[in-house]
């Protein structure tokens, strides 16, 4: 469930407000968006992928947040980790064409 919008990283671009498929965020004039409807979060991690600043953290727990704050984020290794894994950062773009599903489907 969406848990953290990093005030230090967020630029207030509101891309997450638009990209969230279940309309969880609400814009706040002059600031970071608000997690207005956390119960509607489907823990799909899409907001993390669309955030250009890696300012969002979705907790792995689908039914309730974990009670984390920005200060709990261990040295930014988790913020942006999914975006990097799928190749949506400039440094990891080669990952976009990495898909080993064919090996999983073949079972070897």
């Amino acid at each position: 469930m969406i848990e953290i919008i990093s005030a230090a990283r967020c630029t207030g671009c509101n891309i997450c407000v638009t990209a969230c498929p279940t309309n969880v965020f609400a814009p706040v004039p002059g600031g970071a968006p608000r997690i207005a409807r956390p119960d509607d979060c489907q823990t799909c991690f899409m907001c993390e992928l669309y955030c250009p600043e890696d300012a969002l953290y979705v907790a792995p727990t689908a039914l309730a947040p974990q009670g984390l704050t920005e200060g709990d984020m261990p040295a930014t290794t988790l913020l942006g980790s999914y975006r990097a894994a799928i190749g949506w950062t400039p440094a990891t773009a080669a990952n976009r064409a990495v898909d080993t599903m064919h090996r999983v489907l073949k079972g070897d």
Binding site: P60, S81, Y82
Partner: peptide
Amino acid sequence: DAMRASMRTAQPNFFLPFDRM
């Protein structure tokens, strides 16, 4: 081991909840 590696790069999202827990 080879399949574990293939699964990771086939479905990064599958591992997010586990890695984060």
